[in-house]
Simulated assay, not measured.
Amino acid sequence: MVADREIVISRAIGAPRELVFEAFTQVRHLSRWWGPEGFTTTTRSFEFRAGGVWDFVMHGPDGTDYQEWITWSEIVPPERIAMVHGESRDDPNAFESVLTFEPAGEETRIVMRTVFPTKELRDEAVEKYHAIEGGEQTLRNLAAYVTELTGNGTTPNGTVPKGAEG
């Protein structure tokens, strides 16, 4: 049974799906919003493609560094990203996450479904690492970031969005 090994977090974000998806595709975006409140990110390497890796360190507000490693297992722009996330390439406790980006009128509903190898690892993530609150904060940071991008009249790549010309 998967239900006792998974965490599902979702949020409506007031931006077009393509823009929300794009915020995941480049490290210059990710480094601005990734992680719970108070965390910062230092990237060692980043390649956004199926089989590509994001090797990074998250710096907690208390000064603790967390080694992180993600490999992208599936990328279907702009609707789905699947990844394996652990501390390192060979982490036996790595977990799988699938993010879906669903258009919802003027907004985008992002759903983050994470499945852990065991119920115990899921429970530890929730109790010790506050995975649910952290996931909610991460999506809140993403929402604030893309809202900021849309508020200045340009998309992250510097082009003017369709319909916003002149």
Rank of each mutant, 00 (worst) to 15 (best):
N157D: 15
V84A: 03
F24Q: 07
E148F: 08
E127S: 12
R17V: 15
W34C: 08
E124W: 08
K119R: 15
E165P: 00
Y129A: 05
F101S: 09
T40E: 04
V57A: 05
F21V: 10
P103F: 04
A23C: 02
D123I: 04
T108F: 06
E133L: 14
E74T: 04
W72T: 03
L19D: 07
W69A: 01
T42K: 13
L19S: 05
P92L: 10
L121H: 02
G151L: 02
P161E: 11
A82G: 07
R49M: 14
L30A: 06
I13D: 03
G135A: 07
I75W: 01
H85F: 13
E22N: 14
T25C: 12
D90I: 09
P78K: 04
S97N: 03
G60Y: 11
E165S: 10
Q26N: 10
Q26M: 02
Y66V: 14
F56G: 02
P92S: 11
A50C: 09
I70P: 04
T42R: 14
M58R: 01
I110G: 05
T42D: 15
M83P: 00
Y66M: 14
N152V: 15
G63N: 05
E22R: 13
F21M: 08
N141L: 04
F101A: 11
E87S: 13
S97P: 00
E74Y: 00
G52H: 08
S10Q: 14
D90N: 13
E106K: 07
E136C: 01
W72D: 00
T40R: 04
L30Q: 06
H85A: 08
P77K: 02
W54L: 02
P36T: 04
L19R: 11
N152R: 15
A23L: 01
T41H: 10
N141P: 06
W72R: 01
D91R: 09
G135L: 03
R44F: 05
P161R: 09
E22S: 12
A23G: 03
E165V: 13
M83R: 01
E120W: 02
E120T: 12
A50L: 07
D62S: 11
M112P: 01
P61V: 02
R44S: 11
G105Y: 07
E22W: 09
T43Q: 03
T147S: 14
E165Q: 13
G151Y: 02
V84G: 00
G60W: 08
V2L: 13
T64R: 07
Y66D: 13
G134R: 00
E22L: 08
S10T: 13
